[in-house]
Amino acid sequence: MIDTEATDLPELPGDWRRALAVVAHPDDLEYGCAAAVARWTDEGKEVVYLLVSRGEAGIDTLDPEVCAPLREREQRASAAVVGVDTVEFLDHRDGVIEYGTALRRDIAAAIRRHRPELVVTLNHRDGWGDGPGAPRNTPDHVAVGRATLDAAADAGNRWIFPELAERGLAPWDGVRRVAVAASSTPTHAVDAGPGLERAVESLLCHRAYIEALTDREPEEYAREFVTATTSRAADRFGGRPAVTFEVFPR
């Protein structure tokens, strides 16, 4: 039985229609967050994916020229499983994505183009958790997360990147929240139950990547990972599986 009194993570507000999810690599959204995306698209919300790289450095046994189109195909198939039709790639180099004005400009351009009220990204901090023993985050995730938080403001300021307006991308100050997935200090959650099976299937679409990553059966690996990820905060969300976010209001 769900104990609705045993929750201290409120539901992420659903008072929005469009979201833009910005991450560094193919598969970043599939390690848990896709369950929230499936629920949102079920509710009729529009979600667009923006991948800063094509993940070409992610499989050691494949040359980047071969890997990039493979991982792009896997990402598009993965997105379709959870109701996402639009997937865009920025072509920054996988593994050496740099935080800076070029990255902020590219993300701000996408925000102006798609005009989301909610922007989603991945953990931008140096580690996956608190304390000196926490696993290190990757530079790509840190750069993209930080740039996304900044670009949400850049997109609304006509005097930052004025060249975007010259390209027909008028300022968009309609971003109300940036939601950071996989944060060690979450403030909100989304019920992962309705989208859990599709989240597993979505991760499974990255089969080439998973097979290079582990010797385990891909189906077993995907189900165990997604289930474990969405179970971690259940005791803070009324016993329900959850995708958690640290929310930065705008």
Rank of each mutant, 00 (worst) to 15 (best):
A6R: 15
T7R: 15
R17G: 04
V22E: 07
V23T: 15
H25L: 10
R39E: 14
D42A: 15
D42V: 00
E43Q: 15
E46T: 15
E46H: 12
V48P: 04
L50S: 11
L51W: 01
V52A: 13
V52G: 02
S53T: 15
R54F: 02
D60H: 02
D60F: 03
D63W: 01
V66I: 14
P69K: 06
L70F: 04
R71A: 02
R73I: 02
S78V: 06
E88K: 08
L90I: 10
L90R: 01
D91G: 06
G95F: 05
I97Q: 04
Y99S: 03
R105D: 06
R105L: 05
D106V: 01
I107R: 02
A108K: 07
I111W: 01
E117S: 14
V120Q: 05
D126S: 14
P132V: 13
T138L: 07
P139R: 03
H141G: 13
R146M: 14
A151R: 10
W159M: 12
F161M: 03
L164P: 07
A165D: 12
R167G: 00
G168N: 03
L169K: 09
P171Q: 13
W172R: 08
D173A: 15
G174I: 14
V178D: 09
V178L: 04
A179G: 09
S184E: 12
D191E: 05
R198C: 00
E201N: 08
L204E: 09
A212P: 00
P218Q: 05
P218C: 10
E219H: 05
E224Q: 13
F225H: 10
F225K: 05
T227M: 06
A228G: 01
S231L: 07
R236S: 05
P241Q: 06
V243T: 06
F245I: 06
F245D: 03
F248Q: 09
F248E: 09
P249V: 08
R250D: 00
